[in-house]
């Protein structure tokens, strides 16, 4: 199993009282699956992704990546997993404004040094995502759709096994949203598991599984592969 989320609970404290952002969440992801997690704002979607990425520790439960539990790992070990096995796409604008598109795309490489010719690979990815001519531009000169493509290229630079995309289409128009989701679908088809959280409900036709997260509880609402 590529990813297994087991009995995951995350509690926060607000105004002295604790509340569960995630409550006993379970799901798995296999290679090449495209999973959408939908839910309204504040339902715990981003919290779930951040725990899978090792950016937060759960109050209870466990995340396994290729059967390796994340709990008990050092910051260095979790960082290594995040940079080699996970491509994380944070919510909103996350390109570094003082770096060009190609340098932004190369950034995850410098944490691991696991690519021999990173600039070549970065250029190829940028070309594949249709922004080849913007390689040496800075993020502030890019449109929302172009930035999103650059961020996707950055997430793919280390050939991750899992892509975690946090609301990747939230600030895009319909046309760009469709294009970005199609890119994710293509990535999944090529063998990378894509887990995308979104508050939009029109991703079903592309997803193998759709989960809904509501008040911290996850339930499966759609399973393409199961149907097939």
């Amino acid at each position: 199993m590529l990813l297994k989320v087991s009995d995951l609970t995350k509690e926060y404290k607000r105004g002295g009282k604790s509340f569960a952002a995630l409550n006993n969440v379970n799901f798995t992801a296999k290679t090449g699956e495209f999973i959408s997690i939908v839910g309204c704002s504040g339902s715990g979607k981003s919290t779930l992704l951040s725990i899978i990425a090792g950016l937060q520790t759960p109050t209870d439960g466990e995340v396994f990546i290729e059967s390796q539990p994340l709990s008990g790992l050092t910051d260095k070990e979790i960082s290594l997993i995040r940079s080699t096995k996970i491509g994380y796409i944070p919510q909103g604008q996350s390109l570094l404004s003082n770096l060009t598109v190609i340098d932004n795309v190369c950034l995850p490489y410098v944490f691991t040094h696991n690519a021999d010719d990173v600039k070549k690979r970065a250029s190829d990815l940028i070309m594949q995502l249709g922004i080849g001519e913007l390689s040496n531009c800075y993020p502030n000169s890019l449109s929302g759709g172009e930035r999103r493509r650059a961020v996707i290229a950055r997430a793919l630079i280390n050939s991750p096994k899992i892509i975690l995309a946090d609301e990747p289409t939230s600030d895009l128009d319909r046309k760009n949203t469709k294009e970005v989701i199609e890119i994710f679908k293509k990535i999944a088809v090529q063998g990378t598991a894509v887990i995308m959280v979104t508050h939009e409900n029109d991703t079903q036709s592309y997803s193998d599984f759709v989960y809904e997260l509501s008040e911290g509880t996850l339930r499966e609402v759609f399973g393409n592969k199961l149907k097939l």
């Binding site: 960082s79 290594l80 940079s83 994380y88 944070p90 570094l96 995850p108 944490f111 280390n158």
Partner: peptide, 9 residues
């Protein structure tokens, strides 16, 4: 963001 992309502390 750098941390999220895999940079250690």
């Amino acid at each position: 963001v750098i941390r999220a992309l895999g940079a250690s502390k």
